[in-house]
Amino acid sequence: MSEKELKSLEDLFQARIDRDEKIEPKEWMPEKYRQTHIRQISQHAHSEIVGMLPEANWITRAPSLRRKVALLAKIQDEGGHGLYLYSAAETLGISREEMYEQLHSGKAKYSSIFNYPAVTWADMGAVGWLVDGAAIMNQVALMGTSYGPYARAMVRICKEESFHQRQGYEILLTLCNGTPEQKAMAQDALNRWWWPSLMMFGPKDAESPNTEQSVKWKLKRKTNDELRQQFVDQTVPQANILGLTIPDPNLKWNEERKHYDFGDLDWNEFWQVVKGHGPCNKQRLEARKSAWEKGAWVRDAAVAYAEKQEDRELKKAI
């Protein structure tokens, strides 16, 4: 294909996206579109899967059966979200094994938030409220993205997410209406999860190199800073209902902007965690790898069993 032909194909492709048409698997797409989507969708999938780990830590320690079934159901949902997203990425021509390989070798990233530890029960509340809350904002924006399988996965995921956030908030609400110690535990969780949650929206717009292309492909419907602002604006009143204090001395309603002003994030910490030096990066990857390796015999046994059954059917037929 000549350069001119390629350019005109790319223009036609972009025009379809501008008209709000969806791109479906096997249709022609620019190679960069394919690669960018494989990267973003698989990293999104990895985040769902690794995100199960900090919460799994609390299943056996949930304070009541009601909390335990809710937490189990939430974590099972996250496993499902991972699967929807891996499936969507597979339609672009990458195999599941390749994606696991990229995760396990450290080549692929996942959301940095899961490299923070969940040290008290109140963290289950803060994670549902803040971490799922931030994820929902990103994901709602992505329901209108241009790649059909990704957009459909987002619609399904968003339907399931709202229970996650509500169960988290309810955990904190209960703690905040409990003993002073319980309320202090809730405040402590907010103190530790607030800033990492704001970091979930990524670097500042000025330092986010892919923004323009991603906006064109509707991989980004709102910029990092816009989403972060929206998150702060919606979360502050929710903290007030709990009677908790957001750990930011610079947080203040700005009547002129009709938004909250808030303090600057610790970008040094952000990049440290992204580069693998967060509190739990090593532990999370180890847990993933060990689950995969220790499960190998189960996967093999299932294949052996399937082959044996098929063999039997064949013999019966003869």
């Binding site: 099972q76 499902g80 699967l83 599941r96 996965a153 299932a302 069993y305 399937a306 098929e310």
Partner: peptide, 23 residues
Amino acid sequence: CGSLHAADAQMALQNARDVYTRR
């Protein structure tokens, strides 16, 4: 509604139930 990996049809059905019909 989507796809999944499974060793055989029976397991595919079970996984589909767990993943796509939880609600």
